[in-house]
């Protein structure tokens, strides 16, 4: 009798851990994507894009507010339309703000991206109104895998994140533009001497980064719904992910993201769940104390 009960409990615990692991990995990929999205811009322009939280939010609003609710597009065309709209926005921001700003001091660069974020935020509030928007039935529900029941959103996040990573890897390794992007990340002067159009390259990088932002925005709609503060936590944890994985490294961002995602879910089981959001930032500060170059980071050659 008692043995049966114990095994039942063990199975139950095992299931919980597995479920936490799945949600941890899913959130980890979200943080990792955020890490990648800002690292791309950092490597290309040397700017830390503090407006990324608002870009993620903007993506979700354009999708939900403009395309699904106002024009009544179905989900897939709406996603495509959102990404196209965000790319136009990215090109505009790249040429008017990011590219002219890249030679300014760190202080000005950071503050102007923060202000850009605030302006976007206010514009969204004025245009879409302060209330949260819900998209009915978008990525909601549960999926049963074997005996495991997990939220559909998590499965979709993992799936989409893997596709984005694969595409990004292919793009960076195989295409001429991707190779040029890697060159620009390493040395802007040398790249421009080799005939790479650095400004165009930055523009493309920013467009890719913003599209990733908008996809993140779509993916987290079922978790946070479409509201102005929807991306504040993931954007901050994405920063932490980048540093923990190794600042400036794309694989590092994913590793750091997964690290945070899994750790905070496990910590949420041990500590009161209200402290779950603190874990990522404590990890960040510990990491800087113990191993400032991050999990995958190498020491930079100056």
């Amino acid at each position: 009798m008692s043995i049966v009960r114990v095994t039942k409990e063990v199975v139950f615990l095992y299931k919980i851990i597995l479920q936490l692991l799945v949600s941890g990995i899913a959130m980890g990929f979200v943080y990792g994507l955020v890490g990648i999205e800002y690292t791309l811009i950092w490597n290309s322009t040397g700017l830390l894009n503090f407006s990324h939280e608002r870009i993620i939010m903007l993506g979700a609003y354009i999708f939900a507010g403009s395309f699904v609710l106002q024009t009544g597009l179905s989900v897939l065309p709406a996603i495509v339309a959102t990404i196209i709209a965000i790319i136009f926005f990215a090109v505009f921001v790249a040429y008017t703000i990011f590219i002219p700003l890249r030679n300014m001091s760190a202080l000005c660069a950071i503050m102007s991206t923060v202000m850009l974020g605030n302006i976007i935020n206010e514009s969204v509030r004025l245009y879409y109104g302060p209330e949260a928007i819900t998209v009915k039935g978008f990525l909601t529900g549960m999926i049963r895998i074997g005996t495991l029941v997990v939220a559909r959103a998590y499965v979709v996040i993992i799936f989409v994140a893997l596709i984005i990573l694969a595409l990004l890897l292919l793009f960076m390794m195989k295409t001429k533009t991707g190779k040029a992007m890697r060159c620009v990340a390493q040395n802007k002067n040398a790249s421009s001497l080799m005939g790479i159009d650095v400004q165009k390259n930055m523009m493309i990088t920013i467009a890719i980064s913003f599209s990733i932002c908008s996809i993140i925005g779509l993916l987290v709609i079922p978790l946070y719904s479409v509201k102005q503060s929807m991306a504040s936590m993931i954007s901050l944890k994405g920063f932490a992910a980048g540093v923990i994985g190794g600042f400036g490294s794309l694989p590092g961002a994913i590793v750091g993201g997964l690290f945070i995602g899994i750790i905070e879910n496990i910590a949420g089981m041990i500590f009161p769940s209200t402290f779950k959001d603190v874990v990522a930032f404590v990890c960040l500060i510990l990491m800087l104390l113990l191993r400032p170059s991050g999990i995958l980071g190498k020491k930079r050659i100056s």
């Binding site: 901050l236 920063f239 932490a240 500060i285």
Partner: peptide, 17 residues
């Protein structure tokens, strides 16, 4: 730029706590 990132994290920890 580590200071910008850790100070943001710190502010967030304090507010959450």
């Amino acid at each position: 730029v580590y200071l910008s990132l850790t100070t943001i994290a710190f502010g967030e920890i304090v507010r959450q706590l």
